[in-house]
Design a protein around this nucleic acid. Structure first.
Lengths: 178, 178
DNA sequence: CCAAAGAAAGTGAAGGGTCATTCATGTTAT
DNA sequence: ATAACATGAATGACCCTTCACTTTCTTTGG
């Protein structure tokens, strides 16, 4: 007989994941202690273990919701809007920094790699659906290269700071048009 | 009056950096202890501090030599060779995994970010020099997008495992030809 | 040429600290 | 009353770094 409802439990989990994402973005996974997450979330040391069995489970939960939006069309304007969205997330929330942490951790952990690879597959699938059928090149290959540029852009936002998306948008269009 | 010559000191430093890179590639920066590096290098606990003042200095030394080779020309063949080189380094030495660690750390440390940003600038500069003057687009913008694809390819080698470079090579050529 | 002094280099045990996790105890809702 | 939930001090492990001590090499005075 639970003292609280499912919605309460869900809200508490979200509270923890939000706090963890904030700290992971600032200090990385290894640089963030459970005490940091607990403080950011306003919980007590022990209570967090009612919602996550370990720090690693929190890392996984943060990585699982790492997906970005997709472009809605493959015009120069839509693609630019998409990159501006990525850029704004990096500026306002440090999202590119978090993504860099996630890739590094995924490179070391098969479990995380599977999660990230799945998200990438989903992104390529969504993109391939937008590519016109009369495209001169194979849609799958175009999607592959498209995602690659987006990753490169995000990683460089993390390392080099804010970057004009124009060259990247142009390149994306060049790829699409073969 | 030093007991050993400069070449000895250099060799010892290289020994440490090589050992550190091996372990960093397997376990990441935070997951590698000084004891791990010492063991890998076949040194004793205290002696490593004669060559590096701290673990962080070793991390910096590893990041400083993270540069990759450049393509020698911008033909499809040369570009493919370059990507195959990146691919082979990832397969044989786990280099893509190490690069992912470096980007994540650079995203958190301004000092490392400066080092990596410098390497990226150098790469773009070298690339821009290869772009034919009659190219329809601006060479700097092309180099920017080119590097972005290479980063995206490397990061995905780290996360998704071995990948055929063909789609990426095609995209690189599409960018170059406007 | 030899030996002993002296300095550089090496060693590994221990200090000082942090961290993830647990658990005995307290609190609150049913 | 009782069981779910919360709390935070305690625990045990790990880790970076230091340092007193040993070994090894160079120098130098006899």
């Amino acid at each position: 007989m639970p003292k609280v409802g499912q919605s309460y439990l869900d809200a508490r989990r979200k509270q923890i994941v939000d706090a963890a994402r904030t700290r992971f973005t600032s200090d990385g996974f290894a640089g963030t202690s459970m005490a940091d997450i607990v403080t950011e979330a306003g919980l007590s040391t022990g209570s967090i273990y009612r919602y996550f069995a370990s720090k690693n489970e929190i890392v996984v939960a943060v990585c699982e919701q790492g997906t970005e939006a997709f472009p809605t069309a493959l015009t120069l304007e839509a693609v630019t809007d998409f990159l501006e969205h990525v850029r704004a997330l990096a500026r306002d929330k440090g999202h590119a920094r978090l993504v860099a942490q996630i890739y590094a951790e995924a490179a070391l952990s098969p479990a995380l790699a599977a999660i990230v690879a799945q998200q990438l597959t989903e992104m390529r699938r969504a993109l391939a659906g937008l590519i016109p059928v009369d495209s001169p090149s194979d849609a799958g290959q175009i999607a592959e290269a498209f995602v690659s540029i987006c990753i490169g852009y995000s990683q460089q936002l993390a390392v080099r700071g804010d970057l004009d998306p124009a060259p990247f948008a142009k390149a994306l269009m060049a790829i699409i048009q073969g």
